Simulated scan of single mutants.
Amino acid sequence: MALVPRLFLISHASTDAQRAVAFPRDEPVSGRGRRELVRATAPVADVALTAPELRTIETATALGLSPTVEPLLRDMDFGRWSGTAMEEIPAASLAVWLADPEAAPHGGESIHDVIVRTGTWLASLMDSPERIVAVTHAAVVRAATLCALGAPASAFRRIDVRPLAVTRLDGKDGRWNLRLG
């Protein structure tokens, strides 16, 4: 029986930006996030990866992983909106961004861009027989889920990813399958 890649995507622990409903900067895990991590465990893996941001590195380290930084796992680039509360964004710009997955009124990445970046990364893992744990961001987990399901970019915001959620994807026959439970 041929071995297939198994990918466990873990979203980072809570941050102050999440609590404030703000677009994040490179910030640490919050006090709440540190309390979440006390109860959390990581799946057994052959390879551990993390996004380059502080909150993902702190999460991976607290989970007992010794990860390698993978730049393609980085958070969505929110451009001018980084560090800004959602309520402070002009309503017209926010409406465009929420309605159109290809829009980037903040000057950063569009949702479409994140999905393409994540799909490229997933494709690079398809021939790996390893179990991989990757600590990353909700946006990347959403994008990976859409890629696995072949779902449209318009479904991006319909996927709720909680802090420390684990999403499993198994590679088989040139595609990724979402595995629940």
Rank of each mutant, 00 (worst) to 15 (best):
M1P: 03
L3M: 00
L3T: 03
P5Q: 09
P5I: 10
I10C: 03
H12K: 01
S14N: 12
D16E: 15
A17T: 05
A17Q: 05
A20F: 04
V21A: 11
F23Y: 11
F23H: 06
P24G: 02
P28S: 02
P28G: 03
P28W: 01
G31D: 15
R32W: 05
R32M: 04
G33F: 05
L37A: 07
L37S: 05
L37T: 03
V38R: 14
A40K: 08
A40S: 13
V44Y: 08
P52Y: 12
E53C: 06
T59Y: 04
L63T: 10
L63E: 07
S66F: 12
V69L: 14
P71E: 10
L73T: 14
R80Y: 00
S82Y: 10
I89H: 11
A91F: 09
A92S: 15
S93M: 08
L94R: 08
W97G: 07
W97V: 01
A99L: 11
P101C: 12
A103Q: 05
A104V: 07
A104Q: 11
H106Y: 02
H106V: 00
S110H: 11
I111W: 02
H112L: 10
D113L: 08
D113E: 14
V116K: 05
R117Q: 01
T118E: 06
G119W: 00
V133D: 07
V135T: 11
A139L: 07
V140W: 02
V140F: 03
V141Y: 02
A143G: 06
L146H: 03
A148K: 09
G150R: 02
A151C: 05
A151N: 02
A151V: 04
A151P: 03
P152R: 07
F156W: 00
I159S: 01
A165S: 13
A165E: 10
V166A: 10
T167W: 02
R168A: 13
R168V: 15
L169P: 02
G171D: 10
G171I: 01
K172C: 14
D173Y: 08
D173A: 10
R175Q: 15
R175H: 15
R175Y: 15
G181Q: 13
G181P: 13
